[in-house]
Structure formats: structure tokens, C-alpha cells
């Protein structure tokens, strides 16, 4: 029998704790594939964040440091400054990166910190049970915006990729989506590019991956993907925002 496709060894065979239909698993796999394709298994150091992906180290077979909520870019800075030749990446949710950790992500990018950031935007706080996130869409119902996010008081969703792209230290910024096979193939390229940016010491790289949270959105996995495509993409357009 000929093997035509197999998972990279760096992607562990653990049963995942993620809910059915959640795209964290897909994103993990893209990270694993990028590390494997760059042959960086022995020098990769991940920085997990606080959110559903706090257990990322259970699925990726490389060194890991698990950061406090929002602080992953600062922790990664410490790691990278000590091991400049390691492949250092953070993996952060939208509450982590776009709310409590805004200062850390902005300044890591502004410094041109030579790290790769994987940013999972699922428009909600998954881990804590579906509260409003900084990326929650206007009108979107969450457990803390029961009548739908109302901009009068709750403000508007934040487009992090566009903000980060304005910073001179950012070398590569792309937003991709995880909602069907072609979009995942494009996301895979973006993730790889974000790691290559680091390998070539070009500076800070971030990939924002629009992701689903069927459990907290109250949707089936398929409906969640459709909702992502129909509602999230108009608010968070896909594309490359920065490439140097």
C-alpha cells in the first residue's frame, strides 16, 4: 500500500478536547504541517495562551511554554531573545489577543519581534462559555450580549490584522478563513508563510484565522461554517495586509 498522505509526527495522536466542529483542531494541524515542512521540529518552541487552546501542548510535540491570559507575545519575546534561532510561535484566541493582550501584541509587532503569531478569531470567548469577545459582530448574541451586541455601549468589533499591518515592525500579516477545503488550503499557505517570515528573520508575522465555535454559537458545525462565510468575512475581509 502506498502512503499518499499522512499526518506529520509533530502532530500527536491524542484525542482532542475540542468540541465537535471546532476549527482549533484544523488550525493545530496547519501549524504542525508548517513546522514539519520547515523541518523545525527540533527547534520549535510554542507559547500557548489562555483559552480553549490552553492545552495546545497536548497535541503538538515540541517544546512549549504556557502563558498567562494575553501575555503570550511577551512570553514569546523572552523565549526568542534567549534562543534567537528557535522557531517561536504563539497561538492565541481573540479574547487573549484582541482584548486583555492588546498591549502585548501591538508592542511585539512594533518591535518587529521575530516571532510567528497564530491568531484564532472565533468571535466569542470559547473557554469561559460563550461571552462577548472584542471580535463579536454587531448584533451577535452571546451570553453577555443576550440581545445581540449593541454598539451603543458595547462598541464595535476590532480588526486586529488591519491594525497590526500599520506597524513598521510587522513583516507579514494575513487573514484567512477555515470554512471549506479551498479556504483551508489557502490558510495553510498563510501559516507556512508566517513561519517562513521568521526563518528569514524578516520580523513579526501574524496570521488571523477566522474560526468556528459551533457550541457557543449554538449552531451545527456545517451551519457554523456557513455563518462564518456569510457574516464574519464581510466584517473581517480575507487577504494579505502586509508583506515585506
Amino acid at each position: 500500500m502506498k502512503t499518499i498522505y499522512k499526518k506529520p509526527d509533530v502532530f500527536l495522536s491524542e484525542n482532542m478536547h475540542y468540541c465537535p466542529g471546532c476549527t482549533h483542531g484544523v488550525a493545530h494541524r496547519l501549524v504542525a504541517e508548517a513546522i514539519a515542512e520547515l523541518g523545525a521540529e527540533e527547534r520549535a518552541i510554542g507559547v500557548a495562551s489562555v483559552g480553549c487552546s490552553v492545552f495546545a501542548a497536548n497535541y503538538l510535540d515540541c517544546d512549549f511554554t504556557e502563558a498567562a491570559h494575553g501575555r503570550a507575545p511577551a512570553v514569546a519575546t523572552g523565549v526568542k531573545r534567549v534562543h534567537p534561532n528557535a522557531l517561536v510561535f504563539t497561538y492565541q484566541g481573540d479574547g487573549d489577543l484582541a482584548s486583555i493582550g492588546v498591549a502585548e501584541i501591538i508592542h511585539a509587532a512594533a518591535r518587529g519581534e521575530n516571532i510567528t503569531v497564530i491568531f484564532i478569531n472565533n468571535a466569542i470567548y470559547g473557554m469561559t462559555g460563550g461571552q462577548m469577545a472584542p471580535t463579536t459582530l454587531v448584533g451577535q448574541t452571546t451570553t453577555t450580549s443576550p440581545g445581540g451586541r449593541n454598539p451603543a455601549g458595547a462598541g464595535y468589533p476590532i480588526r486586529m490584522s488591519e491594525i497590526i499591518a500599520t506597524l513598521d515592525g510587522a513583516a507579514y500579516v494575513e487573514r484567512a478563513g477555515l470554512y471549506d477545503v479551498p479556504s483551508i488550503a489557502r490558510a495553510k499557505k498563510a501559516v507556512k508563510k508566517a513561519f517562513e517570515t521568521q526563518v528569514h528573520k524578516k520580523g513579526f508575522a501574524m496570521v488571523e484565522l477566522l474560526s468556528t465555535c459551533p457550541t457557543n454559537w449554538g449552531k451545527t458545525p456545517v451551519d457554523a461554517m456557513t455563518w462564518l462565510k456569510d457574516y464574519m468575512i464581510p466584517q473581517f475581509p480575507l487577504g494579505v495586509f502586509k508583506e515585506v
Binding site: A67, A74, V75, A76, G78, R81, H83
Partner: peptide, 12 residues
């Protein structure tokens, strides 16, 4: 951020 950089560097 400073103390979390310390955390990363200490762990490294």
C-alpha cells in the same frame, strides 16, 4: 509585559 518576558526567558 516585562514580568512575562522574564517568565519566557526564565523558562528558556
Amino acid at each position: 509585559a516585562a514580568i512575562n518576558m522574564v517568565y519566557g526567558a526564565a523558562g528558556a
